[in-house]
Simulated scan of single mutants.
Amino acid sequence: MTVVTDKIQNHAGGPVEFVGQVAAKMWANYNGNIALLRDSFNVSSGVDLGTGFTELNLVSAMKDVNYCNTATCKYSVNSFYGNNTKAESYGRAAGVVNVVTMSSSTGNNYDCEHLNATVSGDLA
């Protein structure tokens, strides 16, 4: 069976709440080179904490620190280093996602042009 739709609504015609279901509770597309939050869901701001360190502040906090965070990065779209970088989360907090981006070969921190982060778990 295939379901095709352009919109999912609740019975009253409003947006569907994904609180009890498995769906991303936060995602962000961030440019670490110029500290620019390109687009996001449930993120109030992105903060440059120094070379390679980014803090993403959540609008609605997670229930606790036991959420799943996934982050990826690409140093630069037009650079060889784009395939040699990694992103890791550190320092858990319910209202903040911290990510560090670095070279996977040297361990040196880099501000990545394309940092993407996603969180799954329960909202507070």
Rank of each mutant, 00 (worst) to 15 (best):
Y90A: 06
S89E: 09
A28M: 01
D6P: 08
V59H: 09
S105F: 15
A61C: 05
Y75K: 02
P15T: 05
V3N: 14
E113N: 10
N42M: 05
V59T: 12
V97W: 01
K25E: 07
F53C: 00
F18E: 08
F18P: 06
S76E: 11
G50E: 08
T5A: 13
L123C: 05
G95H: 09
S120H: 09
A117Y: 03
G52S: 05
F53D: 03
S120W: 12
G46M: 01
V47L: 06
N42V: 00
R92C: 06
N116L: 06
T2E: 15
T85Y: 07
Q9A: 08
N109E: 11
G82R: 03
L123P: 03
E113C: 12
V43Y: 13
A24E: 11
R92Q: 07
R92V: 00
T101S: 03
L36S: 10
I34C: 04
A124N: 15
K86M: 12
S40F: 06
Y75S: 01
N84E: 09
A35I: 00
H114K: 12
V97K: 00
L115V: 11
L49F: 05
S104G: 11
T2R: 13
S45G: 01
T70K: 10
G50V: 02
V4S: 13
K63F: 08
G121H: 07
T106M: 14
N108T: 12
Y30W: 01
L49K: 02
Y81E: 14
T72N: 09
G20V: 00
S89M: 03
G121Q: 12
G14P: 10
D6H: 13
Q9V: 07
N57A: 01
C68M: 03
C73G: 01
I8P: 13
N116A: 10
H114T: 14
S40I: 00
N31T: 02
T106K: 10
